[in-house]
């Protein structure tokens, strides 16, 4: 079936299968920052925005974004680079496989959260697993990015 959506600010008309998930559709269209890390909705690596809200693209049926806006890391590359600069300066990215999903959720957090203590940050990002870093460096980077000292 054909869907019309605005992906990273551009209007697209894409042919998708009825049971296709958004993660596959986006990857098939060359948006390679979109990756998956599990089959159960637990890891958050596949996080993208639909209508500005972070969702799991692995669990979102593609037809459901018909008429909606979709944003991947490629669509917020400037802001992403700003955070990534801080993250890398902190040495807090390791294998990097979890980074795109993390960044999409960090940017959503920056927009949505009103109080940004350590607990609030960690809770908002709880759905983003990372096996390499142990999370502490990511927390330091998020706090620097938000300009808060956490507590």
């Amino acid at each position: 079936m054909l869907i019309n959506a605005v992906v990273n600010g551009k209007k697209v008309s894409w042919e998708v299968a009825k049971d296709e998930m958004l993660a596959d559709t986006l990857r098939n269209h060359g948006l390679l920052s979109v990756r998956t890390g599990c089959d159960t909705g637990n890891c958050g690596i596949c996080t993208v925005w639909v209508e500005g809200k972070p969702v799991l693209s692995c669990s979102t049926l593609s037809f459901r974004v018909d008429g909606k806006s979709v944003t991947t890391l490629e669509g917020v590359s400037k802001e992403a680079a700003k955070f990534a600069e801080i993250l890398t300066a902190e040495g807090a990215e390791q294998c990097g496989f979890c980074s795109p999903g993390l960044i999409m959720n960090v940017l959503a957090l920056a927009r949505e959260l009103k109080t940004c203590g350590d607990e609030e940050i960690n809770h908002y990002l709880a759905g983003n697993l990372c096996r390499c870093t142990g999370y502490m460096g990511q927390l330091r980077a998020v706090k620097k990015y938000l300009g808060v000292d956490g507590r």
Binding site: V55, T60, G127, N128
Partner: peptide
């Protein structure tokens, strides 16, 4: 509902 997986999950 706050501990059900993560924000992205709960948005779905």
């Amino acid at each position: 509902v706050r501990n059900i997986v993560g924000v992205q999950f709960r948005n779905g």
